[in-house]
Every structure is written in structure tokens, then in C-alpha cells.
Design a protein around this nucleic acid. Structure first.
Length: 886
DNA sequence: AGGCTCACG
DNA sequence: ACGTACGTGAGCCTA
């Protein structure tokens, strides 16, 4: 809310019309529980938000037309005659738009015998006199007659999400007229949509010429006798009365007898409870979601006709035109192994389903699927790509993925379920998989085949229906390129990597495992001996009792449920009792054994490989994550764990593993986006960034004054900065006092002032816009930035600082991966990209191709984007992942 | 199902 | 006065 006096006046009828037709294509699936159409209400709300955010008014009113008859129809009975009737689907929504406004704390107003324009004109005049600036929003250009140096008229263009601001200068630019001359223009040329006549044969061109010469209609008629004889002169004389009447009709009244005053219009924001109740009544899931309110799943109302495909009717496929929806159905997550239970394909003209995926491999179907010119819309392109690949099909031509689009629009929508996401985008006519198949052990095909088929068709229809809406939103967010040029092609690259998999030497793991088991046994006995009893070492609860109650060690940290026994705690207790070190040793080995030896062994497939799945739509920053197994957290920091990497080997004899990683990519990204000159200089001169920081914060003059410990602390500070620093966090991390940490940070910001400015600016942006963005417009919303709770708010602020850095780094390696796959294909190499670990890419290749990769991979990676600082890439290779040394 | 711990960038 | 480093996944234990 602005502290200045700023009045916003909205032409309710005009905006509602725009809203209705902007979402007309979605009319049928925008209905609530009672069958009320809600598309105009929905779009009106969206537009209202945009306007409120842009204008930031202190006072607001929305004016509506009262009825069919006004003082204008009394003057001229044909006024607005012949206008097509307001569609009933819109009429029924007007009362609810008013209800919405009321929940927003905004007055809506109409007045007998007057139009919305007159209410607006009158209030604008009053407000100007009272020292307000005024913004008017409408789709009707006639209102531009109201522009003054204090009143701006904003005209909605292109649907409902863009507005064009008319000031007197802008009117002059567009029409060459003063705002006050617009009524003269209308008087002369008439208005077909309002159905008043003007002067015969006079259109915009002629009228503008006349007004340029004589300023007003009055002026024109003062000089009409001087005009030389012409058809125009005849028409002017003939239609004199019509011209003056039309001017009167076009004139917006500034003296309507209003019963509201400006003081009644103060805007203090919505009443949340009312608003939530309203959204619930309207079934607006996405708005509820924005308010962090969960809503119940809707039950689809509409069923569709469909045809079951068989071997005998596959030629029906040739009738598909335009973008078709396609999807292979599986009941479980892991698409590398899940049973394929059916598929859907089609367009709104005709939907097809089947429970026999073997049909997909029939030549006629396979050709269709592999035809890149036959465009397809899907839900989860990677899933379908991998499934198709299992049938020997290389799916091509996918132009839309509902899952990816939904993720980019709002990363918190991280469901993988089509029904859930469709509901979130206010599309109700599809059930969730859980509703149809059940969950957990009960998950199964529905008893009736027709129930299954109907669900498939509803999914197909949902993808089809939501595509235009989501594409429009992506474009609005400037994310369409991110979608089309990054996430979609990346999905195909990832599919290939997952399908290829990486070979794991099971016998190597088993041998390591048996050694670990022996060590664990010894450590276990030692713990029991030192404790004087046996207990479950893996139970933090039991361990807590032993350490803190029986042995009486000091309690350093507590968790919600009891004593903390985490590493940092145990490390502090190490000096107090020998059992602590034994427990630490046990923990370390137990972790390696259970997660990496036994866990990894369980996920090896028949082909001796592990095939991870990269989750492309999960993280809040744009990074990938990896599951089944997670190959992004294989041990490397400590020697015992690192040996696990010996089990990761090339898939063919005579091949090598090859890896390249970005060096300090996040700090380089920070140097770029913050524009900090000192940090940029350090990278441009290829200096040791942590030593450089050490010099800066310890006030040293030369690099050889930097001790290893100074460098370590500086490195931690650099990390802290990337994470959205706090003195407390830094002090905990490097074991210094909070006071010391604070002075480190102050020195840091003094030396890198651009970084400090970036931190301030990005938090401000998050507050103002509600989100932050990466270099490639990946967006993360941070509603907690306004939280009352210090904790929540601080967390959101740190996230605001970290996300553009971590997320831009994620963008960059994604670009590199797409380019890399193209290069491998182009150069016809046997080398294959296998893994991505956030800033690292891992390949396997015949030994002979290693020299090629040593040049190619770094050059692709460091030129993936062009930043203000160079990107540095380091590479290495070896016979196992363990042996890759850089 | 959720908490704790610990593996990675 | 508040009580934190950013982003993940998996295994284990305990409700």
C-alpha cells in the first residue's frame, strides 16, 4: 500500500469482458462444484493482482454499469442498440466478481442511469481536486479523454495481462489530439459499437484532419460556411445535430450524483479468511495453493468417448492432425523396470486407449512415434522416452511436457502426479492416480477396464487442455525459452544417460563389504566393552541413554526428541571417553556398508549396471536430483568411503572413465551476477580465490602471508556468502566466536562491495516481486520473505541470496550437457555421457577417444555461457571412478 | 510417516 | 529477542 494518495479506478464491466474472452478457450473446464462458470472470475483475479502490484494504490473502486437504460438511452434510444447480448456464462459470474472484490476489501459500485465511465469520470475529478493521483484501468479507449497530468488511463491490451498507459503525451503521440478532443473525434466519426452515428462518411482520418484545423466540433461548425463546396461540407451541414448529439453521448460525465466518497475507498488489502472461503467455493486450487491452503481433490464430472486401439484399427492413427497427446501408463515410479500397463493417444477430436503396449512397436505406430514432424504433448517426457526405448522406440517430436512446464512455473508444485498438478492449475476433470489406483500395497488396476480407460483419456484431455494455458504463462514469465531450449532437450539427454547406465563391479563391492562387516564386528564388541553392556548402536535413543545418562557425558545439543548424537557433538565429546571415537568409527563404516555396499548392490540391474533416475522437477533451485540409486552422493571426502568408487567401472574392456568439473562455479556465478569488480578481477587473473579472500579479510598485502588456516577460514567464508551468510552460521562452521565471524563478514563486504550490494538488492527484489530468478529466468517464489517469524523470514532471505547462485550454476551445466550430447553425436564418438553431479560430468569412452574428450569436454563446458569471468574446467580419467585424478 | 544421521555438491 | 548456514537421498529407528 502506497503512502501517497493514489486512487485506482477500474472499469469492472470492461475488465470482466476482457477476462472472460481471454480465457474463453478454457470455459468448459472452469466450473465450480455447483456448475458455475468461473473463467472470468479467475482471470479477473489474475488481472486485479497485476494491476494492484503495478499501481500500488492507497484507494480503489471498481465501477460497474447499472443496467440497460441510462441518461444516454433517454437522449438517443438506439444508444448501444444491436450489441450482442452478454453471454449468460459471463452474466452469471458478475455477482461473484463483486464478491471477490469484497473479499479483497475493494468497493464495487454502480449507479442507476449512469455507466461505469461516468462513475469513474466523476471520481477522478473529485480525487484530483483532493490532491490524488489517479489511475484508471479499462479496455475502452474512449476513457482516454480523462487523461490529465494527474490521471493516467491504462488500457488493457492483448488479453488481460498487459496494459498500455495513456498520459496526455501518449494520447498526443497516438492520435495527435488533446485528451479533451477525443469527444470531438467521436462526435464526428461516431461509434459503431456504441451505435451512434456522427457525420456521414466521416471516419477517423477525416475527423482528425478537421480537428487539426479547427480544434473542436464547435470550431468546425464555426468555419463550415468557409469550406469550399464538397460532399464533406454537405454531410457536415446535413448531420450537424447528429454530430453534437454524438459528442454529448461520447462525453463522460464528471458530475454523476455519487453516493460514495473517496474516503470510503481506502484500500487495506484482502481479508484472508473471506478470500479463502471464496476460493474454496470457486474451486480455485492454485490460488488456495498460493495462500498455502491445501484443498480437497475434486471429482471429475465429464467422461469422454474413446476408441480402444487393436491390431486391426491402427490405421486410425493416420487421421490424427495437429499436436497429439501421448502417454505410456505405469503403476510405479521406476520406469526402467515398471510394468507398462497401457497407453493413451489422440486429440480432442478422437481419443484412443489400449492396455496392450506391444501395439506401440507395430511399424505403423512406431513410425508415428518416431516422426519428429508429428508433434506430441506429454506428461513427463523423460519417463515416456525411457519406456518407449524399452520397446525399441525412439520417441520424437515432443513439443510440450505438462510436468516440466508446471515445474518451471512454480517449483513448489513438485508433485509427479498428473491429476494433482492439473488440479493445481484449476483443471478439475481428471483424477489423481491415487484415486484410481490406490496407494501403497493396495495400488492396482481398477476392477473395471472402462474405469482404467476413462482415467487414461481424462489424462490425455488434461494435457491437451492445459497446454495453451501453461504455454501462455511460461511466455508471461519469460520462461518459454527455458522450457523449449533447456528443459525439454535436457530431458532427452538425461533419458539417454539413464538408459546407458554405469557399470558397477558387484564382486568388488561384495569383497569390500565382507571386510567392512569384520571391522564392524570388532568395533561393535569394543563399544559394548566400553559401555559395559550391549545395545543398538544404530539407535540414537539408546546411544543417548548410554552416553548421557549412564556415562554422564555433558549434553551439548538436544533434538526435538532427545539428545543429539550427531558427529559435531561426538567430536566435542571425543576427549571425554574413548567410547566416543569407537562410535564415530563404527558410524562411518556402518554408513558405507549399509548405504553404499548393500544399498548399491540392491540396485544393480541384470546388465551389471545401475540406472539412476534424475528427478528433473524436484529441487527448488533447478538442480537435478538422483534416485534409485542416488549417484550424486557417492563418498569421496574420506578415504574409506572413497574406495566405493573403485566399483564404478567402464562398461567395456579397454575403455576408461572420464570426468570434467567446473572449478568454483558458484563463486564465479556470484562474481558475474553481483558485478563485483574485485571478485571478477581475481577470477580473470586466475588467482586462488580462497587465498585472495584470505588476504582481503585478514588485511594482508601479499599472497605468501596467507597461512593454511587463514585460507581454510576464508574458504568457509566464501561458502557462507554463497549460502546467504549469517555470523552465527559461519561461527558454528569454523569454530570461531560470533563476534569474530561478524568482523570477517564486515571485512568481506568491504573488500567485495558489489557482493554486499547484490545481497541487499536480491532480498529487496524478493520482497517486491515475491520471487527470485536465475540467469535463465528460472523462478523460485519466496512467500516467507514477508513472514512475521524471524526464523522463517531469515530463511527466505538466505534462500533469496543462494537460489540465483546455485540455480544459475545449475542452468549452466544443463546448457553444457545439451551441447555436449550434440557434440558427441556430431563427432560420431563412442564416448557416452553417464552421470552429472551438479558441477561435474562423467563419461565412459574407448581409450583412444580420451585425448579427444580432454579437449572437447572442457571447451564445451567453459563456453556453455559467456559470463563476465571465465569458467574454469578441470578433467581427469582412469580405469575406475576412484582412479580419476585431476 | 517422521526424525535423525550422514553421504554428496 | 529471535536461533540459522544452501541444495539433495537413503538407511535406520521409533512412533
Amino acid at each position: 500500500m502506497s503512502s501517497q494518495k493514489k486512487l485506482l479506478l477500474i472499469d469492472g464491466n470492461s475488465v470482466a469482458f476482457r477476462a472472460f474472452f481471454a480465457m474463453h478457450q478454457a470455459l468448459d473446464h472452469f466450473t465450480n462444484q455447483d456448475g458455475l462458470h468461473t473463467n472470468a472470475i479467475y482471470a479477473f483475479k489474475n488481472m486485479l493482482d497485476i494491476i494492484l502490484k503495478k499501481i500500488e494504490p492507497s484507494h480503489v473502486l471498481v465501477a460497474f454499469d447499472a443496467g440497460k437504460t441510462t441518461f444516454r438511452t433517454a437522449e438517443f434510444s438506439d444508444y448501444k442498440a444491436g450489441r450482442s447480448k452478454t453471454p449468460p456464462e459471463l452474466s452469471e459470474q458478475f455477482p461473484y466478481i463483486r464478491e471477490l472484490l469484497s473479499a479483497y476489501g475493494i468497493q464495487s459500485y454502480d449507479l442507476d442511469n449512469f455507466e461505469a465511465d461516468d462513475i469513474i469520470g466523476t471520481l477522478a475529478k473529485e480525487a484530483e481536486a483532493a490532491g490524488f493521483t489517479v489511475d484508471i484501468v479499462t479496455g475502452d479507449r474512449d476513457l482516454t479523454q480523462l487523461t490529465t497530468d494527474k490521471t493516467t488511463v491504462n488500457i488493457t491490451v492483448k488479453g488481460v495481462n498487459e496494459i498500455e498507459a495513456y498520459t496526455p503525451e501518449h494520447v498526443q503521440e497516438k492520435l495527435g489530439l488533446l485528451p479533451s478532443q477525443i469527444i470531438d473525434l467521436k462526435g464526428l466519426m461516431g461509434d459503431t459499437s456504441d451505435n451512434y452515428p456522427g457525420v456521414t462518411k466521416v471516419g477517423e482520418k477525416t475527423a482528425l484532419k478537421l480537428l487539426a484545423a479547427h480544434e473542436s466540433i464547435e470550431g468546425v461548425y464555426e468555419h463550415v460556411d468557409e469550406m469550399k463546396a464538397s460532399k464533406l461540407k454537405e454531410h457536415l451541414i446535413e448531420d450537424r445535430d447528429q454530430a453534437f448529439m454524438s459528442k454529448m453521448l461520447a462525453t463522460i460525465r464528471r458530475d454523476a450524483p455519487l453516493t460514495v466518497g473517496i474516503d470510503d475507498l481506502a484500500y487495506n488489502g484482502p481479508d484472508l479468511e473471506t478470500l479463502i472461503a471464496f476460493y474454496q467455493a470457486m474451486n480455485f486450487k492454485s490460488f488456495l495453493n498460493q495462500l498455502n491452503v491445501t484443498s480437497e481433490e475434486a471429482v471429475p464430472v465429464e467422461s469422454y468417448d474413446y476408441t480402444v486401439l487393436t491390431n486391426d484399427n491402427l490405421t486410425l492413427l493416420s487421421e490424427l492432425t495437429g499436436t497429439a497427446t501421448f502417454g505410456i501408463e505405469m503403476l510405479t515410479d521406476n520406469y526402467h523396470t515398471a510394468e507398462m500397463i497401457g497407453f493413451y493417444v489422440g486429440t480432442p477430436k478422437h481419443w484412443y486407449v489400449s492396455d496392450d503396449v506391444a501395439l506401440l512397436a507395430e511399424p505403423i505406430f512406431k513410425d508415428w512415434l518416431e516422426d519428429a514432424d508429428q508433434t506430441k504433448a506429454v506428461f513427463d517426457v523423460k519417463r515416456n522416452q525411457v519406456a518407449a526405448s524399452r520397446l525399441g522406440i525412439e520417441l520424437a517430436g515432443v513439443e510440450f511436457d505438462l510436468l516440466l512446464a508446471s515445474y518451471l512455473l512454480n517449483t513448489t508444485n513438485n508433485s509427479n502426479d498428473l491429476g494433482t498438478l492439473a488440479n493445481l492449475h484449476d483443471y478439475q476433470n481428471v483424477q489423481t492416480d491415487e484415486q484410481v489406483y490406490g496407494k501403497g500395497a493396495k495400488r492396482a488396476l481398477p476392477e473395471e477396464l472402462t474405469t482404467f480407460y476413462q482415467h487414461l483419456v481424462q489424462k490425455a484431455a488434461a494435457i491437451n487442455q492445459l497446454q495453451p494455458q501453461l504455454v501462455a504463462q511460461l511466455k508471461e514469465h519469460q520462461q518459454f525459452d527455458l522450457f523449449t531450449d533447456m528443459e525439454l532437450p535436457l530431458a532427452l539427454v538425461l533419458a539417454r544417460m539413464e538408459i546407458t547406465g554405469i557399470k558397477v563391479d558387484a564382486s568388488c563391492l561384495q569383497q569390500m563389504g565382507s571386510e567392512f562387516i569384520q571391522t564392524l564386528k570388532i568395533l561393535e564388541e569394543k563399544v559394548y566393552a566400553e559401555a559395559g553392556e550391549t545395545f543398538n548402536i544404530n539407535s540414537p535413543k539408546q546411544l543417548g541413554v548410554i552416553l548421557f545418562e549412564k556415562m554422564g557425558l555433558p549434553v551439548i545439543k538436544k533434538t526435538k526428541t532427545g539428545y543429539s548424537t550427531a558427529v559435531d557433538v561426538l567430536e566435542q565429546l571425543r576427549k571425554d571417553a574413548p567410547i566416543v571415537q569407537t562410535i564415530l568409527d563404527y558410524r562411518q563404516i556402518a554408513k558405507i556398508q549399509s548405504t553404499y555396499v548393500e544399498g548399491l548392490l540392491k540396485s544393480i540391474h541384470q546388465d551389471n549396471k545401475v540406472h539412476t533416475r534424475y528427478l528433473q522437477t524436484l529441487t527448488q533451485t533447478g538442480r537435478l536430483s538422483s534416485v534409485d540409486p542416488n549417484l550424486q552422493n557417492i563418498p569421496v571426502r574420506v578415504a574409506e568411503g572413497r574406495k566405493i568408487r573403485q566399483a564404478f567401472v567402464p562398461s567395456q574392456p579397454g575403455w576408461q572413465l572420464f570426468s570434467s568439473d567446473y572449478s568454483q562455479i558458484e563463486l564465479r556465478v556470484l562474481a558475474h551476477i553481483s558485478g563485483d569488480v574485485n571478485m571478477q578481477e581475481a577470477f580473470k587473473e586466475n588467482r586462488d580465490i580462497h587465498a585472495n579472500t584470505a588476504m582481503k579479510i585478514f588485511g594482508l598485502t601479499s599472497a605468501d602471508q596467507v597461512t593454511p588456516d587463514m585460507r581454510r577460514q576464508a574458504k568457509a567464508t566464501n561458502f557462507g556468502i554463497v549460502y546467504g551468510i549469517s555470523d552465527y552460521g559461519l561461527s558454528q562452521n569454523i569454530g570461531i566466536t560470533r563476534q569474530q565471524a561478524k568482523s570477517f563478514i564486515e571485512a568481506y563486504f568491504e573488500q567485495y562491495p558489489g557482493v554486499q550490494q547484490f545481497m541487499v538488492d536480491i532480498v529487496k527484489k524478493a520482497r517486491e516481486e515475491g520471487y527470485v530468478e536465475t540467469l535463465f529466468h528460472r523462478r523460485r517464489y519466496l512467500p516467507d520473505i514477508h513472514a512475521k517469524s524471524f526464523n522463517l523470514r531469515s530463511f527466505a532471505e538466505r534462500t533469496a541470496m543462494n537460489t540465483p547462485i546455485q540455480g544459475s550454476a545449475a542452468d549452466i551445466i544443463k546448457v553444457a550437457m545439451i551441447l555436449m550430447q550434440q557434440e558427441l553425436t556430431k563427432a560420431n564418438l563412442q564416448a557416452k555421457m553417464l552421470l552429472q553431479v551438479h558441477d561435474e560430468l562423467i563419461f565412459e569412452a574407448p581409450e583412444a577417444e580420451i585425448p579427444i574428450l580432454q579437449k572437447l569436454v572442457p571447451s564445451v563446458m567453459d563456453s556453455a555461457v559467456s559470463l563476465a569471468v571465465p569458467l574454469k574446467v578441470e578433467s581427469g580419467f582412469g580405469p575406475t571412478w576412484y582412479d580419476i585424478k585431476k
